[in-house]
């Protein structure tokens, strides 16, 4: 399989993602510059974390107008796998590939720490290898991770099983203490209705190499591999 990693000015998790997909997972991986007008034949596109365009206006708001995003949208609408991590999630909501919005953290602080999330939907290409309700330790690092969607949107997310990850404590409980940023219903990651586009605030690429101490994020890359092998 082949990954494409999109680089915007201000992306800063592109090399981390590349290290994981190419060197840890052993998959073919190509960078794609935001001004490019075509993808490089990917099976899965990663929109990495960082501060695309300095987070000017709103996080992800300017990146959606980059030439490559037209191709990413077309690829996604054609069923291609797209995963947006952190700033990538923000770009996907701004683009309209995912519903809702990511607002300033409730605490107004940039939060960078280990975080437990519960996997509540394993019927997606990104979680097929994970057990239902598994609790993963995947670090977060963001200023705008406070997920918001209106009542109708939330109902639609629930009716279509689009919520994939929810922030929890180490025992899997949802409460205010285990909600780092004020996200509605502790939402940490969602998919689109077709389940081929995932957005998540936690960084799986920062918890894949054993040298870091936790490897729970690797489950997501292993799931993608398993899904594409079918």
């Amino acid at each position: 399989m082949k990954y494409n990693i999109i680089i915007f000015p201000g992306s800063n998790c592109d090399y981390d993602a590349h290290y994981v997909t190419k060197h840890l997972m052993g998959e073919e991986t190509e960078y794609v510059w935001h001004k490019d007008t075509s993808l490089k034949d990917p099976d899965c596109v990663i929109i990495p974390g960082g501060f695309s365009y300095g987070d000017y206006l709103r996080a992800g708001a300017i990146a959606k107008f980059s030439p490559i995003m037209k191709e990413v949208v077309a690829f996604a609408n054609n069923g291609g796998l797209v995963i947006g991590i952190c700033n990538g999630f923000q770009v996907l909501t701004e683009t309209g590939l995912l519903p809702g919005a990511l607002m300033l953290n409730k605490s107004l602080l940039f939060i960078c720490k280990h975080q437990y999330v519960k996997v509540i939907n394993v019927k997606t290409p990104f979680t097929v290898k994970i057990k239902q309700n598994a609790i993963l330790d995947i670090p977060i690092a963001h200023n705008e991770g406070n997920y918001f969607i209106d009542d109708d949107g939330l109902k639609s997310l629930q009716d279509n099983d689009q919520i994939v990850f929810q922030y929890c404590d180490k025992d899997g409980f949802f409460n205010d203490e285990s909600n780092p940023n004020g996200s509605l219903m502790n939402i940490a990651g969602i998919v689109n209705k077709n389940r081929n586009v995932l957005g998540m605030m936690p960084h799986p690429e920062r918890s894949s190499d054993p040298i870091i101490g936790v490897t729970d994020g690797r489950q997501i890359f292993l799931s993608i591999k398993k899904f594409l092998k079918k």
Partner: peptide, 13 residues
């Protein structure tokens, strides 16, 4: 402006 029903953390602080 944020919609009236959307929490504004900055305004609150």
């Amino acid at each position: 402006t944020l919609k009236p029903e959307v929490l504004d953390p900055q305004g609150k602080v």
